[in-house]
């Protein structure tokens, strides 16, 4: 029963025993394209998206799950990519802000509603807000203003665009119900 790694510096040169590895080959889909990468298991999905795949629409605001700026969808559900080890994306379908507009560039209804309601200022939290807003509607959590506020509270906006964000998400939710 071999110990696969050690905490001393020789760990780097000692290959771990199966099933463990310190470089993990991972395959997943990002915005409908296949991606294959060799990952250090320390890498977050956020850093892989931004620094390796150059999908920089997803933002880093805290790196600890406190702000929601890095929100993406994994298999259609919203997560914070900063606390998602990228190795856990194996076999999943990841959607980022770059992947929600239509093939011809037409905005997703939630994106359009953010424009129409001026639900943004500096724009830095906006990709995360949009991803959260889309999921919020899909989940059925945008039924009234109070519910939408609660289920959008995982996305901080320091500019204070909250009223517009709620209005935008609610407008789309109302339309999809109708």
């Amino acid at each position: 029963m071999a110990t696969p790694v050690r905490t001393d510096e020789t760990a780097r040169t000692t290959a771990p025993s199966p099933p463990f590895s310190t470089t993990v080959h991972v395959g997943f889909r990002v915005n409908d394209e296949d991606v294959e990468l060799d990952l250090d298991p320390r890498e977050s999905l956020l850093d892989v998206l931004r620094e390796r795949l150059e999908l920089t629409g997803t933002k880093k605001g805290c790196d600890h799950g406190h702000c929601g700026a890095c929100t993406v969808h994994v298999d259609g559900r919203r997560v914070v990519s900063c606390l998602t080890p990228a190795v856990q994306a194996q076999g999943t379908a990841v959607t980022t802000i770059e992947g929600v507009a239509g093939p011809g560039g037409e905005l997703h209804p939630v994106q359009q509603a953010f424009v129409d309601h001026d639900a943004l200022q500096c724009g830095y939290c906006t990709p995360g807000q949009v991803m959260s807003g889309i999921a919020c509607i899909d989940e059925g959590h945008a039924g009234d203003d109070a519910q939408a506020r609660e289920y959008l509270s995982g996305n901080l906006c320091r500019c204070g665009a909250y009223p517009g964000i709620v209005a935008a998400v609610r407008a789309v939710a109302d339309r999809s119900e109708g």
Partner: peptide
């Protein structure tokens, strides 16, 4: 703000770039 608020008649000119994540901030550079 209630949800009946009509969409504003004028639009922020960089709003589209912001909602699509295509606007580039300083450390978006790779």
């Amino acid at each position: 703000m209630s949800t009946e608020t009509a969409p504003p008649s004028t639009v922020r000119v960089d709003a589209r770039d912001k909602v699509t994540g295509t606007l580039r901030y300083g450390t978006d550079r790779v």
